[in-house]
Simulated scan of single mutants.
Amino acid sequence: MYRIHRYVFRQVIIPLLVTLGIAALLLLLERMLRIFDFVINEGGPFSVVWRMLGSLLPHYLGLALPIGFFLGIQLGFRKLSQSSELDAIQSSGIGLHRLLPPLLGLALVLSCASILLTGFLQPYSRYAYQTLAFDVQSGTLGASIKAGTFNKLGSGLTLRIDGSEQGGDIMNGIFIERIASTGRVTAVTARTGQFHTTGDLGHLVLRLEDGILVDLDQRETNPRVLTFRSHDFIISLPHAEQFRERGADQTLEMTLPELYTSYQAGGPHANAAKAAFHARIVRALMLLAIPFFGIPLGVVAKRTTGSTGMFFGILLMLVLHKVLEFGEIYAAMGRGSVYAFLWLPLAIFAISSLRLFYISDSKVGGSPLQWLENIWTAILDLASRLRRKEPRTAV
Rank of each mutant, 00 (worst) to 15 (best):
residue 386 L to E: 15
residue 275 A to C: 06
residue 102 P to R: 00
residue 394 A to T: 15
residue 169 D to M: 09
residue 323 V to D: 11
residue 16 L to C: 03
residue 345 P to V: 04
residue 296 P to S: 07
residue 82 Q to C: 07
residue 323 V to P: 06
residue 210 D to R: 09
residue 12 V to N: 03
residue 71 L to N: 02
residue 38 F to N: 12
residue 201 L to S: 14
residue 227 T to C: 00
residue 170 I to K: 11
residue 2 Y to L: 13
residue 364 V to H: 11
residue 47 S to H: 15
residue 217 D to R: 07
residue 374 N to W: 09
residue 169 D to E: 15
residue 102 P to C: 02
residue 341 F to M: 10
residue 164 S to V: 07
residue 15 P to Y: 05
residue 285 L to F: 13
residue 56 L to Q: 08
residue 286 M to C: 08
residue 345 P to H: 02
residue 220 E to R: 13
residue 162 D to I: 00
residue 43 G to M: 05
residue 175 F to N: 02
residue 162 D to F: 02
residue 150 F to D: 07
residue 99 L to A: 01
residue 283 R to W: 01
residue 196 H to G: 08
residue 280 R to Q: 04
residue 356 L to A: 08
residue 114 S to H: 13
residue 17 L to K: 03
residue 187 A to M: 15
residue 348 I to F: 11
residue 274 K to S: 06
residue 190 A to Y: 05
residue 343 W to P: 02
residue 306 G to W: 11
residue 105 G to Q: 00
residue 89 I to N: 07
residue 61 L to S: 00
residue 363 K to P: 03
residue 34 R to T: 11
residue 304 T to L: 08
residue 21 G to I: 06
residue 260 Y to C: 05
residue 239 H to T: 13
residue 44 G to H: 10
residue 386 L to S: 14
residue 268 P to R: 11
residue 226 L to A: 04
residue 322 K to Q: 14
residue 70 F to V: 05
residue 287 L to S: 01
residue 166 Q to W: 08
residue 83 S to H: 13
residue 156 G to A: 11
residue 26 L to T: 07
residue 161 I to G: 03
residue 231 H to D: 00
residue 198 T to S: 15
residue 268 P to A: 13
residue 10 R to Y: 08
